[in-house]
């Protein structure tokens, strides 16, 4: 399931330290809220797009854009109506419909939303789940919570297959058919037995999983060791230097005169 998210590669960004990448992601997101000119935001967005194409192929970029397209169109269409100050662009019966400021607001929001989306895509496409969780642990995520994430990712496909089996079983008995024309209440009523079966099946796994975890020493107080490790901080120094340069570059845009 996760293979669809992470794009296996050997590029510079793939090898970049996961902790530094997480900080860079936060910086990128903050950057798109900066009160800088739209040109600067657009140039930055273009850089992210190029990085994404280089590291995870053009399909990753296109899929991300396709997913946000409806909301993006909505943003571009609706936002100008909320700000009609500035030079009028379209006037109907003496009323300003579109103004320069409204259009600029819409553009800024569209770039912001696209930028944040693509920054996240770049991060998830180039960071494996192990490194992601290890870096979160390095930043203070508890062992128990990281364990919850790791095990639930393994349980999702399993419970999903249980859900599909139950749906198929109910369909065979014609007790589960979701018609588009049926009322909402009927649809809920139809799906209820399926959900009850799946939930009981899953809940019964809780004591079994708990026993397995106890056998593995989960819950004991002694310090745990970890088989998987991030690269040592010494080896990550070049990445951290690069991150510092990036940070300076990002924050220096605040002092640039409007282009």
């Amino acid at each position: 399931m996760l293979e669809d998210i992470y794009y296996q590669g050997n590029t510079f960004i793939h090898k970049f330290d996961a902790r530094a990448k997480l900080i860079a992601l936060a910086e990128f997101v903050i950057f798109f809220f900066f009160p800088v000119s739209i040109t600067i935001l657009a140039v930055f967005l273009l850089f992210i797009m190029i990085f994404l194409i280089v590291t995870a192929r053009i399909n990753s970029l296109l899929n991300s854009l396709k997913a946000i397209l409806p909301l993006l169109i909505l943003v571009l269409f609706i936002t100008p109506f909320f700000n009609r100050t500035g030079n009028p662009i379209l006037i109907i019966s003496g009323k300003t419909i579109f103004s320069h400021n409204g259009i600029m607001d819409a553009l800024r929001l569209a770039i912001r939303f696209t930028g944040i989306t693509l920054s996240f895509t770049l991060y998830f496409k180039t960071t494996s789940m192990e490194n992601m969780i290890l870096s979160l642990r390095w930043f203070g995520l508890s062992f128990n919570l990281s364990l919850v994430i790791t095990i639930s990712l393994r349980y999702i496909p399993y419970i999903l297959s249980v859900y599909r089996n139950v749906v198929d079983a109910h369909k065979l008995r014609k007790s589960y058919i979701q018609k588009r024309k049926a009322t909402f209440i009927t649809k809920i009523r139809n799906i209820r037995p399926v959900l009850i079966s799946v939930l009981i099946y899953s809940i019964k796994k809780i004591p079994i999983l708990a026993m397995v975890l106890e056998k593995k020493g989960i819950g004991r107080k002694n310090r745990r060791t970890s088989y998987l490790k991030l690269k040592s901080i010494k080896l990550a120094v070049p990445d951290m230097i690069l991150l510092s340069i990036l940070t300076i570059a990002v924050f220096s845009t605040l002092f640039l005169k409007k282009i």
Binding site: I151, S152, L209
Partner: peptide, 12 residues
């Protein structure tokens, strides 16, 4: 361990 497994299954 029981709490972790409860939350894990519920998350899934």
């Amino acid at each position: 361990a029981f709490k972790i497994s409860t939350v894990t299954i519920l998350t899934a």
